[in-house]
Design a protein around this nucleic acid. Sequence first.
DNA 1: CAGTGGTCTAGACCACACT
DNA 2: GTGTGGTCTAGACCACTGC
Lengths: 260, 260
Amino acid sequence: MNTTLPPTDAPSAAESLAATAAFSPLYQQIKGLILQSLQAGEWKPGESIPSEMELAVRYRVSQGTVRKAIDELASGHLLSRKQGKGTFVATHAEHQVQYRFLKLVPDQGDLNTEGPAQREIVDCKRLRASAEIARALALRSGDTVLQVRRVLSFANVPTILEDLWLPAAPFKGLTAERLADYHGPMYALFETEFGVRMVRAKEKIRAVLPDKAQRELLQLPPSTPLLSVERIAYTYKDTPMELRRGLYRTDKHHYHNDLN
Amino acid sequence: MNTTLPPTDAPSAAESLAATAAFSPLYQQIKGLILQSLQAGEWKPGESIPSEMELAVRYRVSQGTVRKAIDELASGHLLSRKQGKGTFVATHAEHQVQYRFLKLVPDQGDLNTEGPAQREIVDCKRLRASAEIARALALRSGDTVLQVRRVLSFANVPTILEDLWLPAAPFKGLTAERLADYHGPMYALFETEFGVRMVRAKEKIRAVLPDKAQRELLQLPPSTPLLSVERIAYTYKDTPMELRRGLYRTDKHHYHNDLN
DNA sequence: CAGTGGTCTAGACCACACT
DNA sequence: GTGTGGTCTAGACCACTGC
């Protein structure tokens, strides 16, 4: 399959295959190698990766095989292809997908008519992870985590109350000021400041009645049911990096989901 | 590009392109042609479609082009590929994806540990579409629709109260008995009995407090917040074919969503 | 065994972006 | 024009299914 060219800087895909004795299609292995480079930070969010031809040479496979690997990574929003320009590491800062993980939309109009959300950081502190939070973030109970509480308003109506927990280690130096000063998606800040890219997430959604403290933060009358949205966000290699609990007002907005 | 072979039963893709003067990649056009055949019922849910080679000959393109078209249709769950056997029209009856559109899952365990849902048809009647329902189903206000109300129970706990509306015309002959007697997903019945295949759907989710009638049907205490899930399901060509309003209990279950 | 989808390759040409 | 990704083709071989 591969000709016996003299070895260069990297082992050929076929050699890697023989070495690991793991079987999978070549393009899956290439996908894995690209993923490794992404995870290692060889190419940073927003940067371009080498062209398909260059990668084909580097991995000793045909362009078509590299292409199929990139196709899959692009469909998972890890990479983003731009005809005539190149292939880029995806980022949460791209305007088209600013709030990729926020599925709350206005009942009428869209996010543009409504304008950007107002963010208010209510709290940001370091604390020890409870058993529950440690489990969600794959930490040990008692490890240090950051807890952030914030309120998002649309058209000056407080609409979302969010608590989120982050492992302290990768986010060393994150403060309330830093969060408040940053204009743009929080996940974009994580990328640029801490090199942490959120790749996918799972949400568990319930209907709940808020307690008194929550009601006051959202300035709600009693007996207003809210959407409880618990999210775990993962970085490369399915490592959980954030636990987020949101309470969403759904009188003027709704959670939108497309089923395919 | 295409050689000047004598015409056979079908115009070549290139000829179709010239005729319609629409520009799109060949594989997109092939995708469209396959979609047409699906819509026309040339291949029914569960049946196999012609092999890639046969389709390549039929459409006068290479196997690779047909392949790319089928790839996209398969990723949209319109077709389902089975190595060594063929490509099949997808169906809601496949065990792996029985409740493809139902995102409510038990907090602990999974659908298997819980066993199948118990269904009870509460009501099934013909009526005139309100303006709102007509709009959702792209009908004229006053057109006849079927309204079905049912309750789903898990482990004998009433958990979902659903109202759904269907345009009467395509579902002629649908009765409460027919629904009650059928064991399996409702969308599978729609496929086999009425040739209507639901392809995708949109859901709008809110938190609500049920009214008295709803509370009684679900045997709930007062002040129990519920998830309101409004779904519009579409068949081929994005034609809306069902409006469904569900109320979900979320004390022992939650709505699960994967974000990518 | 033959037939199906799945992978891999190599080469040609197109569409787009930058310079 | 050059370089990028996007499309299309043709042929080879692999993996799986069922006869």
